Simulated scan of single mutants.
Amino acid sequence: MPQVAHPTSTFPARRTAGRPVLLARWLYAITALIILMVVIGGITRLTESGLSITQWKPVTGTLPPLTQADWEAEFAAYKQSSQYVLMNQGMTLAAFKHIFFWEYVHRLLGRLIGVAYALPLVWFAWRRAIPVGFGMRLIVLLLLGGAQGGVGWLMVRSGLTDRTNVEPAMLAAHLGMALVLLAAVLWTARDFALLARDPAAGKARLTLAGALPVLLLFVQLMLGALTAGLRAGYVANTWPLMNDHFVPEGIAWAGSLWMTLTSDPFLVHFLHRWWAWAAAAAIVWMAARLHGAGAQQQAIALVGLTLGQIMLGIATVITGVALVIAVGHQLVGALLFGAAIMGAHRLGTR
């Protein structure tokens, strides 16, 4: 008499293989939240809202002020900051509530991302749904997200001394860590998606055609962060020349390239304008490689996002950093970076 396999006899093997489809969808959702976080961070910076909350309360800070007394206490704390003393003397409570809103939403979204990552991670681990070889990577991503919150607070603290804004280098570090986290989460999501299509597939490798465009784009985005931190977008509203000069007048060398990069708005604006073309050329090269590999849609998306980002950058300059256009520039920059990561992953699976 033939033996009939017990219905649960394949359960251990299924659990060992994990649930890559669910894991990929989860990490895609986290990626979308990180991009939204970058955009909200851009609005926070452009509206000068980042220093409106002067304390870091990871748990109790989840709730906003609920009474008039609570609002008065928050406003009184803000009045002790250099930003208020040097820039916002006489601000009304209503105006304070406006800048408080954006910083509060930015911090709240950071907490939401932490919960949206940590709780499903625990559930997937308990259900033994994580494929072999990915557990430690997912834990490292959790730690990286926690470190990003700490860097965010250090950035805020840098502006609570004798400044009216945060230190540009700290702003760049905060955005840089966000982009690293975005890249790592999205790359892992793509690994899971690859594993879902082919259980025998290996992890993608990083190739030169993938790494170089991503690196050049990352540098460009860091220059953008320094441009925002130094308010360098306001020093010239003409393109392609800066105030009728290719190399702008007014660059004040501060003894070293690093000191000048983190303090001189004319140099940073100039570099951000022209490094964009090196990054764009590398992205187009990546798109050509993707097209040759049969990933035509990814190639078209990369080129389209690159062109859109360049046009938004020019529009940001000539409109004197109009809020809506500047926010769009930041959004498309984050989307382009994500598309470049996906392109690098695709080239690493050939």
Rank of each mutant, 00 (worst) to 15 (best):
V214Q: 11
I325W: 03
L331I: 07
N243R: 13
W258L: 15
W26K: 07
Y234Q: 14
P2M: 11
G149L: 02
E74R: 01
A13K: 12
P20Q: 03
G41Q: 09
I283W: 09
H272G: 10
L112R: 00
Q3P: 09
L143D: 03
L212K: 10
P265S: 07
Y78C: 05
Q55N: 11
V122N: 02
V166I: 12
L142I: 08
V166R: 01
H245P: 02
A189V: 04
R350P: 15
G133I: 07
A315S: 15
Q298W: 13
R19V: 12
S263L: 06
T31E: 06
T164Y: 00
G210D: 04
A295N: 13
Y117K: 06
L217K: 00
A94P: 00
R163K: 12
W26D: 04
L108R: 06
L154H: 08
F218V: 07
L216T: 09
R19K: 13
T319M: 02
G338S: 11
F270W: 13
Y78F: 12
A201C: 00
E249S: 12
A94D: 14
A281G: 15
W126A: 15
L212W: 14
E72W: 03
S82W: 08
T60S: 12
R346Q: 14
G229C: 02
I325A: 00
R14K: 14
A73M: 11
G42R: 03
A209Y: 07
T319G: 05
R15V: 11
T60P: 02
A334C: 06
Q148L: 10
W285M: 12
Q298V: 05
A125M: 10
M342A: 15
A279S: 08
G229Q: 02
I300H: 09
M177I: 13
L331W: 07
L267C: 08
L312A: 15
T8L: 15
V324C: 08
R45T: 01
W126M: 12
V284S: 02
R128F: 06
P131R: 11
F266E: 13
A201W: 05
W26S: 08
P213D: 07
D162N: 14
T306N: 00
L194A: 15
T306W: 07
A254F: 02
S263Q: 03
G41Y: 01
T227G: 03
V21L: 11
L138A: 01
G133K: 02
Q83D: 12
A193Q: 13
H6S: 13
W71L: 06
L119F: 14
H6Q: 14
I130K: 09
G250V: 05
G328N: 07
L93W: 03
M170Q: 04
Q330A: 13
E72Q: 12
A172H: 04
A278H: 01
G250N: 10
A344W: 08
V247L: 15
M91F: 11
A339M: 09
L216R: 02
A178R: 07
A189H: 06
T60R: 03
L23V: 01
I314D: 06
L23H: 03
G110C: 06
P120T: 05
I314F: 11
F270K: 03
R273M: 11
K57D: 14
F96R: 01
R289W: 14
A340I: 00
